[in-house]
């Protein structure tokens, strides 16, 4: 059985935020809720990299472990989903999640948490597939259409991959193998030192000085 995973290739992500927009559009999430976000590291300096992050659908999900009402479940495809009818909005999953995936619509003046909302891997929730309630509560259900999450499928540089962990890993492995050298190739800098192998022109310069 497939085990659904996301993978963001930091070498390819150009922080266009297309995935964020796609997610909002596909699932029509309420105002103030961001199931997916793009974080840019070393912003504006050499070595800048971006990573798109959402619920990672953990195998040992912390949210599931701490939920006081047990409203989380794994589907057979390894997608972590939850029942919003049961959710009490206590915020424990938000404390436990390392990725900041759980989101809460704020209700009322004192910031009382509403029912938790998070990435569903475009798999809807525990309502009849493609029903009105399912779309209202959890957003679209692309998995039931034989499609993958929209964020990954419409990623322009194919930085964000989604789907069966084995296939995603295979694709990424192929990529890493095909990459030339230097930072692009995984493990290169570690194996050949901090500088890696310099281009030929640099070596020629060193020789003349």
């Amino acid at each position: 059985m497939a085990r659904m995973k996301f993978l963001c290739d930091s070498e390819r992500c150009i922080s266009c935020n297309g995935c964020v927009t796609a997610c909002k559009n596909e699932n029509e999430v309420p105002w103030g809720i961001n199931r997916r976000r793009v974080v840019t590291l070393s912003d504006g300096v050499p070595g800048e990299k971006s990573i798109s992050v959402a619920c990672m659908h953990c195998s040992d999900a912390p949210c599931m472990a701490v939920c006081p009402v047990d409203c989380f479940y794994h589907t057979d495809e390894g997608v972590v989903l939850h029942d919003k009818d049961m959710c009490i909005g206590c915020g424990y999953c938000f404390y436990a999640c390392p990725f900041g995936a759980p989101q809460y619509p704020q209700m009322g003046t004192f910031g009382v948490r509403g029912k938790m909302d998070k990435c569903t891997f475009c798999a809807g929730g525990p309502e009849p597939d493609h029903s009105e309630e399912e779309f209202k509560k959890y957003g679209g259900n692309r998995l039931a259409d034989g499609k993958l999450p929209l964020c990954a499928e419409m990623c322009s540089t194919k930085a964000l991959l989604a789907g069966d962990g084995d296939i995603v890993a295979e694709i990424f492995r192929g990529r890493a193998l095909n990459r030339g050298k230097g930072a692009d190739l995984w493990g290169w800098g570690t194996a050949y030192g901090k500088e890696g192998v310099k281009p030929k022109s640099d070596k020629a310069k060193e020789g003349t000085s």
């Binding site: 047990d70 409203c71 989380f72 479940y73 794994h74 589907t75 009818d85 809807g124 929730g125 309502e127």
Partner: peptide
Amino acid sequence: GDYQGKAD
């Protein structure tokens, strides 16, 4: 999990 809610 020990989820026993609505079946998906």
